[in-house]
Nucleic acid binder design. Structure first.
Length: 157
DNA sequence: GCCAACGTTGGC
DNA sequence: GCCAACGTTGGC
């Protein structure tokens, strides 16, 4: 079992949107970065847990926890010319982009802001990819120790 | 294979 | 809205 962090722009799809989705489940479409895709397609498995990270907006940070409930399968939004995530270079015979399904496990009692996480960059969260300079990956691994520490933050204060 | 131009991400 | 940091594209 692995841990992950997945980013979503709060204004386009937030933790509350997921909470109101049927069965609190959604397909995680729109990943269009090879590094993120490779992790999502090759390493992410059903049963893994991930932090739901809000990017943009007033308070960028970790908003909740989701479970991967379906292994990677072709991202069909890449095949639809009317879709914002359309990519002519991906076709059903040879899909370029993949997605997983995620289900809401918990909305955290409070958002753990990026600002707060940065306070531990030289300590408990040393090496955390989210805090790496210039990091823009939308899917990234989280170590068990990092996972545990961040969860403890959500319960404190 | 190099690299300039361009587009995107995402914090601020 | 600004801009740094990337990733991608395409000419050569």
């Amino acid at each position: 079992m692995k841990y992950w962090l997945m980013k979503s722009e709060a204004e386009s799809f937030s933790i509350d949107d997921l909470a109101h989705a049927p069965r609190k489940t959604t397909c995680w479409d729109g990943v269009r970065n090879y590094q993120a895709r490779n992790m999502l397609r090759d390493e992410m498995k059903r049963g893994d847990l991930a932090f739901f990270y809000h990017s943009g907006g007033d308070l960028p940070g970790i908003a909740g926890i989701v479970e991967i409930v379906r292994d990677a399968y072709p991202d069909h939004t890449a095949f639809d010319p009317d879709d914002h995530h359309f990519d002519a270079k991906s076709d059903p015979e040879n899909p370029r982009w993949y997605m997983v399904d995620v289900k809401l496990v918990d909305k955290l009692p409070r958002v753990i802001s990026l600002r707060e996480l940065k306070q531990y960059a030289g300590d408990k969260l040393a090496g955390f990819q989210l805090l790496a300079r210039g990091n823009r990956l939308s899917v990234m691994p989280v170590s068990a120790a990092q996972w545990k520490f961040i969860n403890s933050l959500s319960k404190a204060k």
